[in-house]
Design a protein around this nucleic acid. Structure first.
Lengths: 204, 204
DNA sequence: CTCTACAAACCAACCAGTCGGTTTATAAAC
DNA sequence: GTTTATAAACCGACTGGTTGGTTTGTAGAG
C-alpha cells in the first residue's frame, strides 16, 4: 500500500518540473540524471524509481510541457471573438517574463534537433504542430462561415501561419539584440495579415 | 617541411566534410571523434593532429558549412533582376535532392540547440542571420531606389522575410508528410508577397 | 637526423543504469 | 495497542561501457 496515495503523482510532477528546468538551462546533451535528481531534491535512486530510463523521462518531460503550453495558448485564443484576432492573438509566445516562454524555446530547439534522428520525438513534434494547425484552421473555418473570409483551404494556411510564428519566435529568442519584442509582434502581424489579405471580405 | 604543401589543407577539408556528414546523420550529441575520424578515413590520432579539440572541430565544421551554403545562395540570388524575384528566389532551400539541403537542416537545428547555451555558437548564428539580412535588405534597398517599392526600413523587413523562410523550411524538413514541397513554395511566396504588398508601387 | 603525418594503445573522467539495503506507511492479526 | 507482514519510497555505492584527449611509436620525406 502506498504511504500516501497521491504522493506518486506529486513526485512525478515535481520531477518533470525539475527536468524541464534542468534541460532548459543546460540542454539535453549536458543534463544528467544526477542533475535532474538533485534539482528535484532527491537521489538518483529515487528518480529512477519513477522513471526507469533517461529516454522515458525526457519524452514525458516534453510531452507534459508541450501539452501545458498548448493548453495555455488554447485558452488565450478562446478570449477573442473575431477570427482575425484569433489568428493574431498569440503575443504570449513573445512574453520574455513568462517562465514557460523562457524555458520553452530551449526545450523546443533541443527537441527538434533530436527529432531529426528519432522517430518517437518526431511523432511528438508532429502532434505539436497538428494541435496548432487544428486550432488555427478552426478559426479560419469559422471566419469563412461568418462571411469574413473568402473560401480557402484552411489546413495549408493554418500551417503557414504556424510556421511564421515559429520562424519569427526563433529569431526573437536566439538573437534578441537584433530582434526586439516590437519587431517580433509587428513581423508576425504583418506576415499573417499579408497572408490573409487576399481572402478578407470585411475590408476593401 | 610538409611532403606535399597543400596536403594539410586537403586533409582539413576532407575532415570537415566527414564531420559534416557524420553530424548530419547522427547528430552532435551522438557523433564521436572516432566516428568522424573513421568517416574521414583515418584514425583518431590523425584527426586530432588537425583539430585539437572536438569543440574546435565542430565550430570549424559549422563555420565552413554556413559559409559555403550562403555563398551558393548569394550566387543564386544574383541571377535575378527584379528585386521581388531576389526576395523570392530561394527555392533551392527546399531542394530535397541537394545534399547541402539534406545535411543543412539537421546541422542547423543541432546548431541552434547548442547556441542557446553557448555564446560562441550564438555569435556564429548571429553572423549567419546577418548575412541573410544583408543580402535581402540590399535587394529591398535596390527596389526602393528603382521606384518599385515605397519607402520602408529594409532591415526589419529583411529580418522578417528571413525568419519566414526559416519557419517554413523547419516545418517542411521535420514533418514532410504534412508539408509538401508545393506547400513550402506557395507558403513562402504568399507570405513574402503579402509582406511586401503594402510597399509595391509597380502593382495596383 | 629531424620533422611531418599519421596510427594504435592508453588513460582518466563521466554517466546511465543496477542493486542491496533502509525507512516509512498501511493493514491485518491477535 | 502492539506486533507482524508487506509494499512503496528512497538512498548511494558500484559497474560496465563510452569517450575526449594524451602518449608513444613509426614510416617516409628532406
Amino acid at each position: 500500500m502506498p504511504p500516501i496515495p497521491e504522493l506518486s503523482e506529486i513526485r512525478r510532477s515535481q520531477i518533470l518540473q525539475a527536468a524541464l528546468a534542468t534541460i532548459a538551462t543546460m540542454g539535453c546533451a549536458a543534463a544528467t540524471m544526477d542533475d535532474i535528481a538533485k534539482a528535484a531534491g532527491m537521489s538518483k535512486g529515487g528518480l529512477v524509481h519513477y522513471f526507469k530510463s533517461k529516454h522515458e523521462l525526457f519524452i514525458s518531460t516534453f510531452r507534459e510541457f508541450f501539452e501545458r503550453v498548448f493548453e495555455r495558448c488554447r485558452v488565450s485564443e478562446a478570449q477573442y471573438e473575431h477570427p482575425m484576432d484569433k489568428l493574431l492573438g498569440f503575443e504570449l509566445l513573445f512574453d520574455a517574463n513568462d517562465s514557460d516562454v523562457r524555458d520553452g524555446y530551449p526545450i523546443l530547439f533541443d527537441f527538434m534537433a533530436i527529432a531529426v534522428h528519432d522517430t518517437e520525438f518526431r511523432a511528438i513534434f508532429d502532434e505539436w504542430v497538428q494541435n496548432w494547425v487544428t486550432l488555427l484552421s478552426s478559426a479560419i473555418r469559422q471566419g469563412i462561415e461568418q462571411g469574413i473570409f473568402r473560401e480557402l483551404d484552411p489546413d495549408p494556411m493554418a500551417r503557414t501561419i504556424s510556421a511564421v510564428y515559429q520562424g519569427i519566435a526563433t529569431r526573437w529568442y536566439l538573437a534578441p539584440e537584433a530582434h526586439s519584442y516590437e519587431w517580433a509582434i509587428n513581423s508576425y502581424r504583418a506576415a499573417i495579415e499579408g497572408l490573409m489579405r487576399p481572402y478578407r471580405l470585411d475590408q476593401p
